[in-house]
Design a protein around this nucleic acid. Structure first.
Lengths: 101, 101
DNA sequence: TTGATTGTACAACAACTATTGAAATAATGG
DNA sequence: CCATTATTTCAATAGTTGTTGTACAATCAA
């Protein structure tokens, strides 16, 4: 993962609504959830949730698939694992013993 | 780590300057660096760097110590490890096998 | 086709964030 | 002391982000 991508991912995760949505979808893997259900669970107006889901999707943290008139969202777990790997790398560089605990 | 804290940390890391500053200081552990040197390496005006170092410090990602008329900054690596643990937890919840790779 | 439902796009606005130069603060050295 | 150096604070500005309501496109059910 390159640094601009990491910055983008942090930016997208730096919102209570978006972080909650992502966490919710991780727990709902692999079925995912449709937008309306996410809005209901998180108690966020649909228009606002759509705004945040779009940001997450553009950052590739979510995938979206049309299902009739529903939009089904799923968490992109491999990308999150890449981000974790990036952070671990940054954190240890020059000091590998720091991450051994 | 609780969620508001994670959101705050993502927010602080969601800036090219701040992420670069943090990465630089991780590589400079355990000596750290003084503000002027960080500004020189990153090629950022001191006034702007000060703004970003303050944000990082308030989020506890950096520590600062006065050293004569210099301010020496160091990376708070344990906090980053906590953040990595939080992300790993979120990523695996409900799907432990996802993180086993 | 009609009418209801799902979700997004758009526009408007308030609130927040980043950047900069100038001034202020604080510590050092002569 | 006074000048110098290091860093922060402040004020101004530009740009970005989040929230909401309204409108719209797509789908489905009858």
């Amino acid at each position: 993962m390159d640094h601009p991508t990491a910055v983008l991912l942090f930016d997208v995760l730096a919102s209570g609504v978006r972080l909650d949505a992502f966490r919710l979808l991780v727990r709902k893997e692999p079925e995912g959830m449709v937008a309306g259900d996410i809005a209901a669970v998180l108690d966020v107006p649909p228009t606002n949730l759509s705004f945040h889901l779009k940001a997450l999707t553009q950052a590739r943290l979510l995938t979206v698939e049309q299902e009739g008139r529903f939009q089904r969202y799923r968490a992109n777990i491999p990308l999150m694992l890449d981000l974790i790997a990036y952070l671990t790398e940054e954190c240890c560089s020059g000091r590998p013993e720091q991450c051994a605990k």
